[in-house]
Design a protein around this nucleic acid. Structure first.
Lengths: 108, 108
DNA sequence: TACCACTATACGGTATCACCGAGTAGCAGA
DNA sequence: TCTGCTACTCGGTGATACCGTATAGTGGTA
């Protein structure tokens, strides 16, 4: 699938939140998980900018741990604000996607 | 629903294409139609920027007609390139939204 | 006549977001 | 020593929706 970047704006961050919400994880692993999910063109740099933004906006708790196979990893976990933001994201997604689907199905 | 603007990036233009694809119409009417569809916060200025962009990218055919109740209207209709772009949009939407839904439903 | 409301479009500037590219760094195997 | 994989950072770019304002035609009303 070619160039989804514009369509991912506003949703990719939510996807990252969802992934972090399942279990504490780190940037490099999140990137690979996104690839497996079908977002094959999302590059590492993008994921890290999102993670830094989440950290700046105080939606995550960060813990640095040694890796054993490379540089130390920064593990991310949602805090209360992050879980609220994630809930808001899914509410918005539900709203927007249902309305677009209705439009697609010929809804007026 | 509050502040959907980021999530609409990359999809609003496609929605406008879809609306134009159904019947020749003009900016002011498109705005009201979007409001009825649930995108209540989309303002006129946004729709006009999209329309000017569609025109610049040669995806639409434009006809100016007098209105009777105000200034002349610029009617927009899709041309072949516009119809192709619309089809591409729905393909992308299908791809992206299905994957996000899968993520939402706990799919890894 | 003056004012207001509704219809209708245009445009310069702004914020946000994903992406790009380059850099830094640790570890393992050939 | 060199290559490849792992892992994170950061400055700059382009696309997009939004904001605010301006312009303009028509009709109603005080």
């Amino acid at each position: 699938m070619d160039d989804l970047t514009e369509m991912l704006k506003g949703t990719l961050e939510g996807c990252v939140l969802e992934i972090i919400g399942r279990e504490e994880t780190y940037g490099y692993a999140i990137t690979r998980q996104l690839h497996e999910l079908g977002f094959a063109d999302v590059v590492e740099g993008t994921v890290y900018t999102i993670l830094l933004r989440l950290e700046r906006n105080k939606l995550v708790q960060v813990t640095k741990r040694p890796s054993g196979v490379g540089p130390p990893r920064k593990f991310y976990a949602l805090n209360d604000a992050g879980r609220e933001e994630l809930a808001r994201f899914w509410t918005k997604w539900q709203y927007v996607s249902s309305r677009i689907d209705r439009l697609k199905e010929g809804g007026r």
